Each structure stands twice: as structure tokens, then as C-alpha cells.
Simulated scan of single mutants.
Amino acid sequence: MATRTNSLNGVHIMAVTNRLSVIRQSPAYWRVVIDNPPFNLFDPEMFAELNVLMDEFERDSDLKIVVFESGDEDFFVNHHGLERGHGAADQPGGASFDHWPTFVTRLAQSSVISVAKVRGRARAQGFEFALAMDMRFASRERAVFSLIEVAGSSIPGGGGVEWLAALIGRSRTLEVVLGADDFGADIAERYGWVNRPVPDSELDAFVDAFAERVSRFEKRALEVGKKLVNARAGVPSEGDL
């Protein structure tokens, strides 16, 4: 996995090829742009880069908040793709998909605040990825959520069931999981897994303003606040997943 760094208008950019670009808006606030054309499939290379990125989050004492977004307005993150097999052992961070519960648990319990800015489809593993984050803001016109595993004779295995059940309750979780259908941002908010839908034209500015605000607060207060909420909200453990 190669990296390159440069700056644009004072913003430090570290591009992590081939799937993720990290834009350092400030030492405390990073944006991670996901780009794996043509469908933003969650593949072994993307998983390896995310594992390396989590290591960077945990090493950086200045980082407070990270926003994950897509470079493709039609797909946030899609279901997993296995064209190259189940792992990416030839690159740093490479791991088979049975390590997915370890990653999402690290993300949910990290001292860094994570935000999903969802534009386009968040499907299967992509939906679980968004659910593992601390907050989700969605494009009212473009966001689509679906857990499609049951339609393929499988079940969500990386937190979809556990997080949804904690957020929206038993009956609605059964509707989402067993129906394997698409849900827009308005229903997602009404059911309770999206913080709020935002008009697509306003989404970038809204999330950026929120992240900038949070990034100015004291890190220890943010970390303890997240830990206390996690303890009371029933965040699933790696063993649960």
C-alpha cells in the first residue's frame, strides 16, 4: 500500500492508495474519502487499508473526529467483493473477512469520534460499516440502506443485527434483516438508525460544520463522553459479533 502527501489551500492530504484518501482538514479533524470504482465494493484491499488507518487513528494523539464519505455519489460502501479471495496478505493490514468483527469493534470503541456521511447505497457490509460509526448523517435524496444477506441465503455477520436491534428494536430489525429491502434516509431517521437526513445540497456543509465544532473541544472530554454513552447504549462486544 503506497501513500503520498501534499497540501491544497492549507489542507494536508495523504492519499492512501488504492481505496482511501485521507484529507486532514486540521490536526483534530480528518476526512476519509472511499473510492473503489465502479461500485465501491468492500474488498480485501479496502479492508487492509482500513486496518492500517485504524492503527493511525490510535497513534495520533491530536485526532478527535473522522468523517467517512464516498467519492461516488451513487455508492457509499457496497457489499463485499471476493474477486481476489478472502484476504490481502500481500499488503499491510491484510486480513480475512472473519476479522471484520475485530475492526468494527475497534471503530466503535475508539477514542476517535467517527461519523458516516452517507450519500448513495450503503449495502450489507457497507451498512454495517456505517452502523459501527458513532453517528450517521444521510443525504435525503441519495442515501439508501439495505441488509441484503438473507436474500442470498446468508445472514448479516458483522454487527448489522446487533446494532440495529439496539437502535430500532426487535420488530423493525426483523423487517430490515428478513425483508432484505432498500430503505431511504427519511425512514432510516424515523426508525432510528440515522441521526438525521439532510438535503443533499446541504449535507457536506452540515457535516463539515458539525465536525469542525467537535474538533475544537477537549479530547479527554470527548473520549470519556463516548465511553460513558457506549456503556449505556449496549454497544456489542467483539464476542457478541
Rank of each mutant, 00 (worst) to 15 (best):
A165K: 15
A88H: 03
V115M: 09
H79Q: 12
S96Q: 10
D60A: 12
L147I: 10
F97Y: 10
G152W: 11
A151C: 04
A130W: 04
S70G: 04
A122H: 09
R170E: 12
W163M: 00
L174D: 12
S111I: 06
L82N: 14
M133V: 03
E162N: 12
A138T: 12
R84M: 05
I65F: 04
A89H: 10
V52H: 01
T173P: 01
E56S: 13
A116F: 02
G85N: 03
V115S: 11
R140N: 05
S153H: 14
G157Y: 07
G85I: 00
R123K: 15
G87E: 13
A151D: 12
D72T: 02
I155E: 10
L147D: 06
L82H: 13
A143N: 06
G160L: 01
G152F: 14
A166W: 01
F57E: 03
E141F: 08
I148K: 14
F127N: 01
G169H: 13
P101V: 03
M54T: 11
R136S: 14
S139A: 14
V104T: 08
R119Y: 07
V118G: 11
V104I: 08
V118H: 12
A122P: 04
L131E: 01
D60V: 06
D55F: 05
G157D: 01
D60S: 14
A138E: 11
T105N: 14
I65D: 00
S153D: 15
G152E: 11
E141T: 11
A166I: 01
P92K: 11
A165P: 02
N78Q: 02
T173W: 07
G159W: 05
G169D: 05
G160S: 06
V104Y: 03
G85S: 05
F129T: 07
G157W: 04
R119K: 15
I155W: 13
T173S: 03
G157M: 05
T102M: 07
H80S: 15
L107F: 03
D134W: 09
E69Q: 11
P156G: 05
R142G: 04
V144R: 13
K64D: 03
S146Q: 11
R136V: 15
A108W: 05
I65V: 15
R172E: 10
V112S: 09
L63A: 09
G120W: 07
F137Q: 01
E141P: 08
E73V: 09
R59T: 11
G152K: 13
G159L: 01
D98G: 05
I148V: 13
F103M: 02
Q125D: 11
D72R: 04
G93P: 13
E56R: 15
G94P: 00
F68M: 00
H99A: 13
F57I: 04
A124T: 12
A165R: 15
G160C: 02
M135V: 07
S153M: 12
S96G: 15
A130N: 06
E69V: 02
R136F: 06
S171G: 13
A138Q: 10
E149P: 03
W163T: 00
A165W: 13
E141D: 08
V112I: 12
